[in-house]
Simulated scan of single mutants.
Amino acid sequence: MDIFLISDNQVSESKEIPDTVPAKGFLWIDATHEEVGADPEAWRNAITRATGVQIYDPHMTDTLNPNHPSYFDSTQDYGMVVFRKLMLNGAADAGDKSSASKTVSPESEGSKRRIPAALSKLATQPVTFLVMDHALITVHERYSRTIEAARTRLLDLCNKPEKTPHSTRPPTSPEDLLLRLINAMVDQYLDLRQPLTTQLDRWQRALLDPRRPFKDWMALLDARIELRKLENLCEEQHDAMQELRDYFVDIDDGVEISRAKDLLLVRIHDVMEHITRVLNHARRLESSIESAVQIHFSAVAHRTNEIMRTLTVITALFMPLTLITGIFGMNFIEMPLLKNNAGFWIAMAGMVAIVIGMLVFFQRRRYLESQALDRR
């Protein structure tokens, strides 16, 4: 558990939760699910002593729920945000490997197929934010790259008490720190756009490759499922941020909004815009998959039509020949050309003439044009 006291461009770190509400500045109390789950009641009592705010039982349950969707709720004393962040590469190594494997490899029992690397990065985990007047409380899994980066920056500020012209400005309020953390989490989704696009482009080329049939249909289905999950996730995040924005506006109680509040609203609108970009990108990728599949089946149907046209022409050429051989195969005693020494050659010449005539007819009706000529 990490505890930081942030005030007036100064940051100090503590190992224990203080017993009193800070007179100046605010507290950032960061804990993991394991630390809270070990003794939830003792942890809640410590938070109450440090902040003067009692966390409600339903919110304690939501805090420890690893499958909770992104949402926002508020009381008279605090606001609660649950935001699902990406569980990137380090999570599976530094975090709980058993839970990570369940999330990163969503494969059915007995199945040997695996989701491609680009899609396995869409595994998420919840981070709970409790924003109060003088404190921000975060609860997350054992490893969080965003929380770790914010913690490192604050520790750097602790080691540099002198303010330099280009030094990083510490958060001015719990709401400011909350939006900084969420904005960093949303940026991780933006970083996934390029690998996802590359993976789908690879599938599109494989779908339209005429030299080899496409066989990775289950992976393509998994991709569509994961993109649909990402779309739903972004919608939940956007709704949560919209409710958080309304919460920031409503807590002014009709008083004129200060410059600090304006900056918070600008920051939250920036977060919502980033979420919208991720949502639009997920929808474009899903639409690209559907378009590629439709083009694939159209190309397959075109090739099938070409094959059927060739077979139809061959069948049409042999039909009159079959008729002639069938006629001469009748068991009549007297038939024309049977006793003629040149009968065989006359029949063969007639068959060749019929084939040549039909080929000329088909050529004039454009039945025998090659695919290369069609492309021209």
Rank of each mutant, 00 (worst) to 15 (best):
D262T: 14
L192T: 09
P18M: 09
I47M: 14
R366G: 10
F332E: 09
Q199M: 06
R169C: 09
T124W: 00
G25M: 00
P58Q: 13
E34P: 04
P336D: 05
R180I: 06
A149W: 09
A123C: 08
F129E: 04
E107V: 06
T138S: 12
G329S: 13
K102P: 00
A372F: 05
S120D: 07
L285Y: 01
L227Y: 03
M185H: 07
G95E: 02
L155D: 13
R44I: 07
S74G: 02
N305I: 03
L321D: 05
T138P: 02
E148W: 06
D250E: 14
E236L: 13
A46H: 10
P58M: 13
H296N: 15
L265F: 09
G326K: 11
P174K: 02
E226L: 15
V352L: 14
D57E: 14
P210R: 05
Y367H: 09
D209S: 10
A23R: 08
P66R: 12
I47V: 15
F83A: 05
H33L: 12
M351S: 06
M351G: 07
F129L: 14
I289Q: 06
L196V: 06
R44A: 10
V127L: 10
S288V: 08
K102V: 07
A92C: 09
R142C: 02
P170E: 12
Q54A: 15
P213H: 03
R376Q: 13
A301C: 02
D8G: 01
N331D: 03
I257P: 07
